[in-house]
Design a protein around this nucleic acid. Structure first.
Lengths: 338, 338
DNA sequence: CTGAAAGCGCTTACAG
DNA sequence: CTGAAAGCGCTTACAG
């Protein structure tokens, strides 16, 4: 049914190597022969079988994206990363093979051995990521969106969350704030590998210590109004002098922090400054809030760019971690301490 | 670097065919030999090269998803379809190769010839879809999420929008409504192939004609407040007796329809009934609205199921169009005509 | 300017 | 119970 190179050769009355050379253009072919071959190929609707070429080690123009996807995955958040990677890859003419396996390791090895992809992108990277170890044994370039501790053997691209933590505290310090609350959600996320939360918080606390600023961390049990109010109660009980809150969470949580402050008769930013960090797609808040956002588009784009550089042989610095500079978006919710 | 079957055979001191049979289990092998081979394979971290197997026509456990993705694609809507397909495929052990080409045809042929995938899913199907024609020439099963007019040669799965249009009008008729407005956005979408809009509207108007009900169609120039108000002005000018509005749009548009009605002193549902059709993820409206929703999860899941049936050789009815029954979700915004 | 042949890494009839 | 060899559809040195 599907015509092969043999069919074309037969139809054109030439050898298969001639057909191959006509198709690839890697050898000059007599005009007459060339025409016969092209004609035959067209009539038979011939398409070279990519599989056979891949077997010979030619590039597939496909990038694997390893990203455990669960029934309970939050699409709306996830999609931003996914499409950022996909669109950037497309720009280079690459398609994306989405690997949704739960436990990345074997699947990764299987795909690498298959020769079906030119490189592998890692998403949802945890602190110590098993996939990074497997990656070293592969003969395929691997670029992680995120920054695992075992980052040798792969390339990593991430937003510099430690720097973000430092800069947030420095900003507060410069404005005269000496009592800061870092507010997060559900302590669990900090434990099981959402490394950016840990890195941001650690750096913020460290820098706070250096500058002599009190940095109190409180994780609400949820993003609901009651959860947040309870968290605020505890925080102000522990440190009544808080003048700045850094919310390392999401729109729902921040909304409730804002209304919680209003309920306590605290005005933003006169009495308390509020900064959102590690957030994205903040959507509609009751009032604009200063933000040090995640920049998934930038991070993902850069990850694909790095992959391309590696594929083009422009790099040989495996293990390199590239950290993007955090941004600060001022919206009037952070001012100098009264 | 990466061990091949030859390496394993050499290490185990057997022939490559023996290794192959041990790995596949398609022949019984002496226990001792078997152990030697498995041992060698383990030590060399051997992975059979899938490419070589695909070359021989074995399944790849990958489904291509042909879906033109543009810089301006609305991710949040698109993501629902994408992930619905991906999750369902995952359940069968299949991964997804996302093809983001603009003009599906050649790309599709290329991938089919490559043997890289076992089947092809079509998304963003337009009325007459070029990809459906290409599909016929491929020796790979193709399932479309959507229902092109040239649906022979492929399998199609879609929500039955014509039936939805009929039922919406019948429902209105049964409740005594005789003057209905179907409200859409940006006429363009109706022209360039968003076939479900066309099908719904056509069927609604046809059924209206049969039943002697006036079905007026108005497309707002946008979803903004002013666009919608202008549309409502025109509609009521043309038919002051409207008692039911069917919004074939989205949350923003419906929100503005609701407030537009309120501004005109019309109460929902006492004065005017409001029904949302062809919508999904309606999110937060000022008030709950009856809905005949798109059911992307169902449609996509079913599309993957059909693909699996075809791959398992359980079907030979190419060209079959499967239409899912529309649902009606009552939320109190539609009542009998006053 | 063109062809016969080896080889990519496997699987599987064909022999023994 | 196991091995030598053909073949999947191409590409590319090697010959002519």
């Amino acid at each position: 049914m599907l015509a092969g190179i043999k069919d074309v050769a037969a139809k054109a009355g030439v050898s298969i190597s001639t057909v191959s050379y006509v198709m690839s253009g890697k050898r000059s072919i007599g005009a007459a022969t060339r025409q016969k071959v092209l004609q035959a190929a067209r009539e038979l609707n011939y398409m070279p079988n990519a599989q056979a070429r891949f077997l010979r080690g030619e590039p597939t123009k496909v990038l694997a994206l390893s990203s455990p996807l669960h029934e309970y995955t939050d699409y709306s958040n996830y999609a931003v990363f996914f499409f950022a990677l996909a669109m950037r890859a497309k720009r280079y003419g690459y398609d994306i093979l989405l690997l949704m396996h739960e436990y990345g390791d074997q699947e990764l090895a299987r795909i690498a051995a298959s020769g079906m992809v030119d490189g592998i992108l890692l998403l949802d990277v945890v602190m110590c990521d098993a996939r990074a170890d497997v990656a070293k044994t592969l003969n395929l370039p691997v670029v992680a969106v995120g920054y695992p501790t075992n980052s040798d053997g792969i390339y990593s691209v991430d937003l510099d969350f430690e720097r973000m933590g430092r800069e947030a505290v420095e900003k507060a310090y410069a404005l005269g704030h000496r009592h800061i609350l870092v507010s997060g959600t559900s302590g669990g996320a900090y434990d099981d590998g959402s490394n950016y939360l840990v890195r941001f918080l650690g750096a913020a606390q460290k820098r706070g210590g250096d500058l002599g600023v009190s940095v109190l961390f409180k994780a609400a049990t949820g993003n609901g109004r009651d959860d947040v109010n309870l968290m605020l109660d505890e925080a102000f009980a522990e440190d009544p002098a808080i003048t700045m809150i850094i919310c390392q969470t999401n729109a729902a949580h921040i909304t409730n922090v804002l209304s919680g402050l209003r309920d306590r008769g605290l005005e933003v930013p006169k009495d308390v400054s509020v900064l959102a960090a590690c957030t994205y797609g903040l959507g509609s808040l009751p009032r604009p809030v200063d933000e040090m956002p995640m920049i998934p588009n930038d991070t993902c784009s850069r990850a694909v760019d790095v992959m391309m550089e590696v594929l083009q042989g422009k790099r040989d610095d495996v293990g390199r971690v590239e950290l993007l500079q955090p941004r600060y978006v001022a919206r009037g919710s952070v001012t100098s301490c009264r």
